[in-house]
Design a protein around this nucleic acid. Structure first.
Lengths: 130, 130
DNA sequence: GTCGTGCTTCAAGCGCGCGTGAAGTCAACC
DNA sequence: GGTTGACTTCACGCGCGCTTGAAGCACGAC
């Protein structure tokens, strides 16, 4: 099994070492063994970091991400996981819908050739998104 | 034409007055006339606030939103608008795709009955999202 | 030995997006 | 005239997500 030090992980995933340390401290990157006092993660941490970044961009706080990624397999933790996930799914749907609406608005406004986002497509009498 | 004070606008859109003042200061809510020293916005500000919130949730900074909403109709400003919008569209697409991937991952992980997001669906050998 | 490199911890600081509190202004009402 | 209430500006504070700096340790090369 491959292991990565903080420098190598940092270069691999494009996240500063200080951020990785911060994430570990906050419980997002557990499973770091210490070899001669230094953090060493299994190779799976790369995928985990990708997950964290994805969730961050989707508007999750670090605490929420930590809860979603929680390795604790006790019944209580599993229940909490399910509750959090169930609560988050509609939020994600809403988030996706709103971002799509915004994307459509920006694209339409560019296409229509106007120069004022505020008074353009979204003024459509259909009274859509906003 | 209807005009709204900061209190009425705040209640209508569900945004604190302090935030509205901050947004005006940062150029996101221009067009506020002063009547006896008080901010008064045309009714269109309600739609504008909705736009701002939408863009915020999509990960835009206030400065970017201000640029997108810019009322300046000079040729230079229009060109800048187009450039910013053109740059932002692929970012929005990427953002939507990633959020959808995360949503799928969370939903699948809930469905599969495991209790460890990290070692569940995303371990699929297809090597998808992350 | 000692130098550099790459890590360690700990404390402090920073940028963003506001929130909060103090002190003053203005219009309306009693 | 006095009070009330909604506003004003200004300065400071706060939570989040890091970043930076200082001081120290481990290890290999010279």
């Amino acid at each position: 099994m491959r292991y990565l030090g903080i420098g190598e992980l940092s270069r691999t995933v494009g996240v500063r070492a200080s951020a990785l340390r911060y994430w570990e401290e906050r419980g997002l990157l557990p499973g770091a063994r210490r070899e001669a006092g230094r953090r060493v993660w299994p190779a799976g941490a790369v995928r985990r970091v990708a997950l964290i970044r994805m969730a961050q961009r989707a508007g999750f706080t670090l605490a929420e991400i930590a809860a979603l990624l929680n390795d604790d397999t006790s019944p209580g933790a599993t229940r909490q996981w399910r509750e959090l996930a169930a609560r988050k799914l509609p939020e994600l749907d809403e988030h996706i819908a709103q971002t799509q609406a915004l994307r459509r608005a920006v694209a339409d406004c560019m296409a229509c050739g106007c120069m004022n986002f505020d008074q353009c497509v979204l003024l459509t009498p259909s009274g859509e998104a906003p």
